[in-house]
Design a protein around this nucleic acid. Structure first.
Lengths: 228, 228
DNA sequence: TTTTTTTCTTAATAAACTTGTAAGAATTAT
DNA sequence: ATAATTCTTACAAGTTTATTAAGAAAAAAA
């Protein structure tokens, strides 16, 4: 069962697509603008995105670029104007296919199917990319537990890596010290200093100036977050 | 095992291609401009080049002409604009194929495969190299289980060879001790020391200074990798 | 088959690195 | 100003990895 995120500001379109796809046993998530799409994408496990280029707030290309910062999920573009398509393809943001509106349901299905087939046959490929997170100049490769800072590999200890991974997998989300301890050590926290010190050590490795962190920020009285 | 040099100034593209090709057991070298490409080509044994036409410094056509001065290595051009392709083909600089961006991974693979097939049918020189892996100064010939260090043959025991082969076939990927044991012995590990000692022996044979390994590195708390 | 040689595993110790703690300094909120 | 929170540092304790050496197992040679 694949999860497909459909992003279009016209409700009739998302609804129609939902019906086509649901019939084929796909599970559909709907978003009506780019920001909403990003929220859903962060929360749900999405296997393919169908996205309109022209949208209010965050348009299709910008949304895609944001998503591409840390995912290689297949993306199919929708648009009424074929000139828009040229622009998108020129941007080289990793469009896997495109469909011009109005489209016929069979064509839509065919493309969704073929894109998914293509990607799943390369499942290792996707998996590899999906095990990578990049935010700003910091890049995590989870298969190798490797951390790159501005392209340079740095050494981290296992605990440091786990904390960094936790925070980077949920950018901008604030984790309390207790939460970090529980998630990383898998047991209830009893000394908050431990986490504090690890945070300091991570900062020393990934921040230019650990005293004025750019990524690993403290939210006073609440906890820490990795800022996107 | 073929070595493919991918030249493109857009890191996302070289990275994506690397993943596609590595999955097919090609070994990928990446360059981000023509000059870098020439350097790598001079140092490494390259069987095929994928090169972008538009690039800073030395562009794709000029780089190709330099290479063609003393090599007939197959070259496939990448470009966003098909007009550029016309120009390249008109130049008659020995383009073996071309792919317009954005390309689909399957198409890329198909062309790489067919180009290599075409070339290998001419000479058995390359075919001989198919079972060879070369990383830095270390060379494995898998047909006769031979290991060369800076061109000099060294002796390895069967287990040493298997470990080295495993790590070198997946350069930069980190394998835990358990993983190494399972893959090499084909049974679950119960004494990690065994692997540790073998690693030490391999280092003794392939490293200049086993205490400061250049190739066979440890990743603390996680495992070992062969660094490229 | 028996002997010899090579390779593999174990175990014990040493070295290197990581982690948690504690205590004082600095910062932020009340 | 005071209290609470976070930062910083250093060090001791704990882990992991490296190194040896010696005996067991396997392979090769006699």
């Amino acid at each position: 069962m694949y999860n497909i995120l459909v992003v279009d500001d016209e409700k009739e379109i998302t609804d129609a697509i939902e019906i086509y796809l649901r019939n084929q046993n796909y599970h559909v998530f709907k978003a009506y603008d780019g920001e909403e799409a990003l929220e859903i994408f962060a929360k749900e496990e999405i296997h393919l995105i169908l996205i309109d280029i022209m949208m209010p707030k965050l348009d299709g290309t910008k949304t895609t670029m944001k998503i591409r910062e840390n995912s290689a999920v297949p993306i199919i573009f929708l648009s009424a104007k074929s000139e828009d398509m040229d622009k998108v393809l020129g941007l080289n943001i990793g469009a896997d296919d495109y469909i011009t509106k109005p489209f016929n349901p069979l064509e839509l299905l065919a493309r969704v199917n073929s894109t998914l087939r293509r990607y799943t046959s390369y499942s290792n490929t996707i998996k590899e990319k999906e095990n990578m997170i990049k935010i700003g100049g910091i890049e995590l490769n989870d298969t190798n537990k490797e951390v790159l800072v501005d392209g340079e590999a740095i050494k981290t200890t296992p605990i440091e890596y786990k904390i960094l991974f936790l925070l980077m997998r949920n950018p901008n989300r604030v984790f309390s010290i207790e939460e970090i301890y529980e998630k990383v050590w898998q047991e209830p926290a009893y000394n908050p200093d431990t986490v504090t010190v690890h945070i300091r050590r991570i900062r020393e490795k990934i921040e230019i100036n650990p005293k004025e962190p750019k990524y690993l920020k403290v939210v006073w009285g609440i906890g820490y977050k990795f800022e996107q």
